[in-house]
Amino acid sequence: MKKNGYVTLGNTVMHYVAFGDGAKKLVVLPGLSDGLATVKEKAWILAGSYKKFWADYTVYMFSRKEDMPDGYSIKDMADDLALAMKSLGIEKASVLGVSQGGMIAQCLAVYHSEMVEKLILAVTAPYANPVLKDAVTGWIDMARRDDHKTLMIDTAEKMYSQKYLDKNRKIFPLVAKLTKPASYDRFYKNAYAILDFDVRDELSKISAPTLIIAGSDDKTVGNDAAAELSDGIKGSDKYIYDGLGHGAFEEAKDFYDRVLEFCER
């Protein structure tokens, strides 16, 4: 099964894609890229990474809702996600949050703990640390200047390993041309929510079994974020990909195998 769908939330909608036919549920939350393009109508494109989940799981990937008010926070995003999950009959699920999606996942596990069976936090942080603030404020400034090419190149430079960059750097300008949004409003609201995020004092409330995945050279959230999460979430497991950075979830060939193994553990 591959499905493109949406949930109505008040006067707006939240888009999602779903794939797989299993009884178990995995909810996936993407990062700040969702501020530039949602998952709408992308089920066939996004399903491939989760092929090994299909038999036993139904995988749901949620965007943030379409119309976000000013001051929309990470906690607000988690509250709306909980409403969307319930409307689809998802009472409890394993949750994989990547980057900003990992921040939403942390809030879901803190404030809606009954809905989180297992928690996987990938390349994310418990607050907007100096490295993360520097990256996000820089991207906001590039968007304000309408310099999408520089925004995409800088994002890539802060995301991927040197090996990946050397191989793919020449295609970044083309990617920039194909990904420029009609408006940056959605991007700004997601980005400012990151800058206001801080759940360090709430991490001890997370009771779900938790796996933290990071790269050893993360130029987006910094290299201390995984340890801060691990220290704050009692009994959590941690895995660091040596030599990879913020794009570990794309570059590491065993990333999704590792997520599946943890979900099945």
Rank of each mutant, 00 (worst) to 15 (best):
A191G: 06
K149E: 14
Y184T: 05
E66G: 06
L178K: 09
F62A: 00
M68C: 04
M77E: 01
F53Y: 05
A193G: 05
K180E: 15
F255S: 00
V27R: 09
R258S: 02
V28A: 10
T155C: 09
L165Y: 07
I233M: 05
P30I: 04
G97V: 13
A227W: 14
E157M: 12
G222I: 08
D146L: 03
Q162T: 09
L203W: 12
A193N: 06
L195E: 05
G138N: 10
D21F: 09
L203M: 10
K86T: 03
K3E: 15
E91F: 14
G31V: 07
I104Y: 05
L229M: 12
K170F: 15
E41R: 07
A128E: 05
E157I: 08
L244N: 00
R186N: 04
L174S: 14
K118F: 14
Q162R: 13
K234E: 12
I212F: 11
E114Y: 08
A82E: 02
L36R: 12
V27Y: 13
I194Y: 09
L178A: 14
L81I: 01
G22K: 05
M77R: 03
D34P: 07
F187G: 05
L96S: 07
F249T: 07
S216R: 00
I153Q: 15
S207M: 12
G232V: 06
E114S: 11
Y111S: 10
S63D: 00
L203R: 09
K189E: 09
V259H: 00
I171Y: 03
I233A: 05
H148W: 11
K158R: 15
A109W: 12
G97S: 10
D70Y: 14
K2M: 14
A227R: 11
M68Q: 07
D70R: 14
A226G: 05
T150F: 06
K25F: 14
I153D: 10
R64I: 02
D80R: 00
E264T: 01
D237E: 15
E228I: 08
A125R: 08
K158G: 05
N223Q: 07
L260H: 01
M115S: 12
Y111C: 09
M152G: 07
E41W: 11
K180Q: 15
